[in-house]
Nucleic acid binder design. Structure first.
Length: 513
RNA sequence: GCCUCUCUAGCUCAAUGGUAGAGCAGUGGACUUUUAAUCCAUUGGUUCAGGGUUCGAGACCCUGGGGAGGCACCA
């Protein structure tokens, strides 16, 4: 259900018609607009330019929250917030205001503020922003309050807030009108606090390891770094097609070639694929590259980044996965993808097997196979069909076949596999890392395989990035690389099961007004 | 893209095919220590849109729209 209030009143005569009947949203807005006129007529600006506060509400609570019941102090404070609740008992009004840090009650006495100001305060609406000068006190029941001496309207709300008790449940409205969601739903605010703490934690951890944060192009002339369908766009004056990035890998590794040694980017990334509880068309990936390191270093820093982020965001490394507590500080098992697939199928699988044998296993498990797929790709499909869903607790799935890992270095002990891993939690891929392929000749050959796959009809296959090859020809040191899906990690930490809960403005169809 | 579910007042929700209701918000009134304040009174509806079936549709059918879950694709 989309918003109806405004399209209920497309014409001005409709507004006045509703206003005449005395209710409805249009009438409510009329009523509040009329209050604005009254305020202006009385010489009050309902939208003043600034307000100087002395304390946030959390600071008020920290400093005076311990007062015994019924204590009045002479400690002056100036606070600001949005009116969330109002309790009017005649010559005394209680209001609850909230700022970013918390909530505090206002104690407003007619005898203190005077008759005229009291009337003005009574006409304040839920949702209005106010600045309050007063003193700290507690009521007889012990509720910390600011005893108001003066209240200034800082911004008038013309539109009523959602239900003060039930909040805003309609998911469509919550995501479209995120402002309303954030005003009324504590959990919504909490999810984004967790996300912020997670990101800030990542930056601290990476700085501690000597990583440099960089920004690379969003507009790419070539698609590369991941197998995904891109968004396409066009630059007018250059008259050239451009792609929104599906990964930042190839640019960051150019920086490793350039000698930057340790770089990372927290990168908004775009993939022109389905929308689901786990997928948004634009999402955030943290990618890092570290010279002289390999995949084992990448697994170690993955564990450190994520457990530290949990501790920083939640105060604990214990998260809940499907209702079960999982301590991220416990070691994460490492299992080869081909072993998991073999167990899932009950048949020993390896990409060196004859393709016909692998296809037979796929047929036995009703796994669809494309003609152009090699054994490695089919084994990955078998892993996804038979094993992936059962990985609930954190696990590194390692050793992906070369065929599906065009940028990863071949395993030093097995020419059919790569030194690659993916972190899975709750059957979702959270991270992907490997020892980087730095041999320009081999990289060119791998790209040519990609191009062949694209020509064979795989529209997710990459193209040959000549400039990237040229960079490798200058020499890239041995390097480990890692990508972490920040939205999915935020989901894990916030304990939510849809990505829309951790993206402030998820992609939705345009609203019909 | 396909399947299923869903859409009623600003918000949260009711209404065996038979007069569209409640709580909150709003309005008027009472109340100087409330806590979702309480009490009395009260305004407010193109039931997502458009067709159809029916004596009668918020409900049943069809088409369209939004959203949610699932499948597919992917992270």
């Amino acid at each position: 259900m989309s918003e109806q209030d405004d399209n209920n009143a497309p014409a001005p005569d409709r507004d006045t018609a509703n206003a005449a009947t005395g209710s409805g949203l249009a009438a409510e807005k009329e009523r509040r607009l009329a209050l604005l006129d009254e305020l202006r007529a009385a010489g009050t600006n309902p939208y003043p330019y600034r307000f100087d506060r002395t304390h946030t509400l959390a600071e008020v609570r920290d400093r005076w929250g311990h007062l015994e019941p019924g204590v009045e102090t002479d400690d002056a404070v100036a606070v600001a917030g949005r009116i969330m609740l109002k309790r009017d008992s005649g010559k005394l009004v209680f209001a609850t205001i909230r700022d970013r840090s918390g909530e505090v009650q206002l104690f407003i006495s007619k005898a203190v503020v005077g008759d005229d100001a009291f009337d003005a305060i009574k006409s304040l609406d839920l949702g209005d922003w106010v600045g309050v000068a007063g003193t700290a006190m507690t009521t007889r029941k012990g509720e910390l309050s600011v005893k108001a001496e003066r209240i200034d309207l800082l911004a008038k709300a013309i539109r009523p807030m959602p239900d003060k008790w039930h909040g805003l449940h309609d998911v469509d409205t919550r995501f479209r009108q995120r402002y309303a969601d954030l005003i009324i739903n504590d959990e919504a605010r909490h999810h984004f606090e967790v996300r912020h703490e997670m990101t800030a934690s990542f930056r601290r951890t990476l700085a501690g390891h000597g990583f440099i944060e960089v920004e690379t192009p969003v507009l790419h002339p070539e698609v590369g770094g991941a197998t995904a369908r891109p968004f396409t766009t066009h630059h007018n004056t250059l008259d050239m097609p451009l792609y929104l990035r599906v990964a930042v890998e190839l640019y960051l590794k150019r920086l490793i070639v350039g000698g930057m040694e340790r770089v990372y980017e927290i990168a908004r990334t775009f993939r022109n694929e389905g929308v689901s509880p786990r997928h948004n068309p634009e999402f955030t990936m943290m990618e890092l590259y570290q010279a002289f390191a390999d995949w084992t270093d990448m697994m170690a820093i993955t564990e450190e980044l994520i457990t530290t982020a949990a501790r920083d965001a939640l105060g604990t490394t214990v998260v809940h996965v499907r209702g079960e507590p999982v301590d991220l500080a416990d070691p994460w098992p490492r299992r080869r993808l081909i072993d998991l697939a073999s167990e899932g199928c009950g048949v020993e699988l390896h990409p060196s097997m004859p393709i016909a044998d692998v296809r037979r296993v796929a047929a036995d498990h009703d796994v669809h196979v494309e003609e152009r797929w090699g054994a490695g790709k089919i084994i990955e499909e078998l892993f996804e069909a038979t094993a992936e869903a059962s990985i609930v607790r954190p696990m590194f799935v390692t050793g992906h076949p070369v065929e599906i890992s065009p940028l990863a270095r071949v395993d030093r002990d097995d020419p059919f596999l790569t030194e690659r891993f993916e972190l899975f939690v709750e059957a979702r891929e959270l991270a992907n890392g490997y020892t980087e392929l730095n041999d320009p000749v081999e990289q060119r050959a791998r790209f040519e395989d990609e191009v062949a796959a694209k020509e064979a009809g795989d529209d997710e296959a990459g193209s040959l990035d000549e400039d990237y090859i040229r960079a490798l020809e200058y020499g890239m040191p041995p390097t480990g690389g890692l990508g972490i899906g920040m939205d999915r990690l935020a989901m894990l930490l916030a304990g939510v099961d849809t990505i829309k809960e951790v993206i402030l403005f998820p992609t939705l169809r345009p609203e019909v007004f």
